[in-house]
Each structure stands twice: as C-alpha cells, then as structure tokens.
Simulated scan of single mutants.
Amino acid sequence: MASGSKKVIIAAMLGNLAIAATKFVAAAFTGSSAMLSEGVHSTVDTGNQILLLHGMRRAALPADERFPFGRGKEIYFYSFVVAILIFGLGAGVSIYEGIVHLRRPELPENPLLNYAVLAISMLFEGAALTLALREFRRTKGKRGWLRAVARSKNPSLFVVLFEDSAAMLGLVAAFAGVLLTQITGDPRFDGAASIVIGCILAGTASWLAYETHGLLLGEGAHPEVVAAIRKMVLERPEIDVINELATLHMGPEYVVVTLSVDFADRESSCDVESVVAQLDRQIKAAFPNVKRVFVEAEAKNPLGPVSGENR
C-alpha cells in the first residue's frame, strides 16, 4: 500500500514538473491568463507531491522516547498543509490573475501553441490520473468512490487523486477559455477561465481539508474492525463485560486499541495475564495494522458498559 502510494506520487510529481515548465513557456509567448494559472497550478501540485513524499518519509521513522507511538501522523499533517497550499497559492493566484485580465483584457497570441501545450498536458495528467485511479480502486474494495475516500486512512493516495482530477478539470476550463477567446475575439473569456480554474482549486482544497482534519485530530478504526475486535473479546468466557473499547489511528497503518473489561470473579490473576496475552496476539494476527493493544482489568461500570456490549 505505501509503496503503491509512493509510486503514484512520484509519477504525478514528475509529470507536473514537466507540465509546469511547458505551461509557463506557453504563457510567456501567448500572454494567456488561463495558461499562466495552469502553470501556477502545476507548480503548486509539484510542491505538494514533494511535501507528501517528505511526510511519508517522516511517518516511517521509528518510535522513540519523544514519540513512543511513532510519527505516523506526519502524513496527516503534510496532507493538511497541501490543502492549504492548494487554496492559498493555487486558487488565490489563479483568481487574482483572472480578475486582472478581466479588468485589463489582452488578446492572447499564438493560440495554436496553447492548444498544443494543453493537449500534451492532458496526456500527462490523464496518465497520472489513470495510475492514481488504478491504485485507489485496488484499495477501496467494494465501497463506492466517495465512501472510500471518506473512510480512507491513507491521505497520500486520495490527495493525489483529488489533485489529478482537479488538474483535468482545470485543463478543460483552460481549453474552453482559449477556444472561446479565439472564436469570439473577446479576451475576457481567457480571464474568466482563470477564475474558474481558481474556483476548482478552492473546492478541491476545501474537500481535502475536510477529509484530512479528522485524521489529524485522531480517527478511530473502521467500524467493522471495532465490531470484530469486540466480538473476539466477548467470545472469551473469562470476560463478562466490555466497559470500553477505543481505537485510534496513529498513522495509515498504525492502530492503537485500548480495552477496559470486567473479568469473571472466578478468574485468578494468572488467568487474567494469560487472557490479556492471548487477546493481544489474536487481535494483532487478525488485523496487522493494530500495533499496540492495551487491556485494563476493571470492575463493571455501574452506569453500564461504555461500549454498550455485555453478555
């Protein structure tokens, strides 16, 4: 999963780097606002992918005294930074350029160069988007696309998916702006296309921020994982009640499980130790992403189990 995400990010980064240079050259020769906005868009995307790769490298660092559960949340932090950059730099510059060209419209030159650059960009972006879609389809299982994004604990993959999708929409907007400007002779269409590109980026950034903020704060494991762990625990005859079952994603592939359970009165301290050790092995074997399991022996909560589960 991590290697697949890294491959997708590197492919997108190399493609965006080449596309950005091409777009800026085209913007310099044609004076197209939409092409300049697209150049800024691709530059921001390139920087974003560098940040994601840095976040993945940091997240892979081993645990230490300062970070006893590792640095898995680094990837969540950098994904949130990416959302801010898309909004602040990508959307902000594009909308600003569009407004400037609407106020002082100038007819772009050499439209054929714009078409050639847009066509090449669509090929590169289409290839990157196809790779991202293939990798995400492999990991999403039977869930729908939107539900899979909402449930994903690996933002590095859906961030690239969002970026590439926004890039394709931006290219379509730029193509429409250049074409309408050429057909009508009105350069304001070029400026309007730049504003549309900025709005696409702003929407993408907002969605990314919404999807990553929960991960950054600390989301629990998928409900089916929690339900399966609860079932494992309640199947133990030595345990009467689950007072509380809590999970926390410390990273895409690092889950912490905490359990508060009421053991049967007949169980000795040795029996309790044995059951705790067995549960630890059983849960980790069933769910490899679970790295730490904490079990607390506690009398039954007089107000009833927090989890709502008992025998």
Rank of each mutant, 00 (worst) to 15 (best):
Trp207Ser: 08
Ile242Arg: 00
Leu217Lys: 07
Arg230Val: 15
Trp207Tyr: 08
Leu201Glu: 01
His213Arg: 14
Leu217Met: 15
Val241Thr: 12
Pro223Gln: 11
Gly203Ser: 08
Ala205Gln: 02
Ser206Leu: 13
Thr212Tyr: 04
Ala221His: 06
Leu216Val: 06
Met232Phe: 05
Tyr210Pro: 10
Ala227Leu: 15
Tyr210Gln: 12
Val233Ala: 07
His222Ala: 15
Lys231Val: 06
Gly218Ile: 10
Gly214Phe: 00
Ile242Pro: 01
Glu224Met: 10
Ala228Arg: 15
Asn243Arg: 09
Trp207Met: 12
Gly218Phe: 10
Ala205Trp: 00
Pro223Ser: 11
Glu211Val: 05
Leu208Val: 07
Leu215Ser: 05
Glu224Tyr: 09
Ile229Arg: 11
Ile239Lys: 06
Leu215Asp: 04
Gly218Asn: 12
Leu216Glu: 03
Gly220Pro: 13
Glu211Cys: 04
Ala228Ile: 11
Glu211Met: 09
Glu244Phe: 06
Trp207Asn: 05
His213Cys: 06
Asn243Met: 08
Leu215Trp: 04
Val233Ser: 04
Leu217Ser: 10
Ile229Gly: 08
Val226Trp: 02
Pro223Ile: 07
Leu234Ser: 13
Lys231Asn: 10
Leu216Gln: 01
Gly203Gln: 05
Gly220Cys: 12
Lys231Gln: 11
Ala205Met: 00
Arg236Met: 07
Leu216Ser: 03
Pro237Gly: 09
Glu235Trp: 09
Arg236Ile: 06
Asn243Phe: 05
Glu238Gly: 03
Gly218Thr: 11
Ser206Gln: 05
Ile200Asn: 00
Pro223Lys: 12
His213Pro: 01
Glu219Thr: 15
Ala209Asp: 04
Gly203Trp: 02
Thr212Asp: 08
Glu211Asn: 06
His213Phe: 04
Leu208Cys: 04
Thr212Arg: 03
Ala228Ser: 13
His222Gly: 09
Glu219Ser: 14
Ala202Gln: 03
Glu238Ile: 01
Leu215Ile: 07
Ala221Asp: 03
Thr204Glu: 03
Ile242Ser: 00
Leu234Tyr: 02
Gly214His: 04
Ala221Gly: 08
Gly203Pro: 08
Met232Val: 13
Ala227Gly: 12
Ala227Met: 14
Glu235Pro: 06
Leu217Trp: 14
Tyr210Phe: 12
Val226Met: 07
Leu216Thr: 02
Ala205Thr: 00
Ala202Cys: 03
Leu208Asn: 02
Gly220His: 13
Leu201Val: 03
Val225Lys: 11
Leu216Asp: 02
Arg236Asp: 12
Thr212Cys: 09
Leu234Ile: 14
Val241Ser: 03
Glu219Leu: 15
Gly203Thr: 05
Trp207Ile: 09
Gly203Cys: 07
Ile229Asn: 09
Ala205Gly: 02
Ala221Ser: 14
Arg230Gly: 15
Leu234Pro: 06
Glu219Ile: 07
Val233Phe: 04
Ile200Ser: 02
Glu224Leu: 12
Ile242Gly: 01
Thr204Met: 04
Ala228Cys: 11
Glu238Arg: 06
Tyr210Asn: 11
Lys231His: 14
Glu219Gly: 06
Ala221Leu: 11
Glu219Val: 13
Ala202Ser: 07
Val241Arg: 01
Tyr210Glu: 13
Ala227Asn: 14
Ile229Thr: 11
Glu219Lys: 15
Leu208Asp: 00
Leu215Gln: 04
Leu216Phe: 02
His213Gln: 13
His222Val: 12
Tyr210Cys: 13
Met232Lys: 14
Trp207Lys: 08
Glu219Met: 14
Leu217Arg: 08
Gly220Gln: 13
Ile239Glu: 05
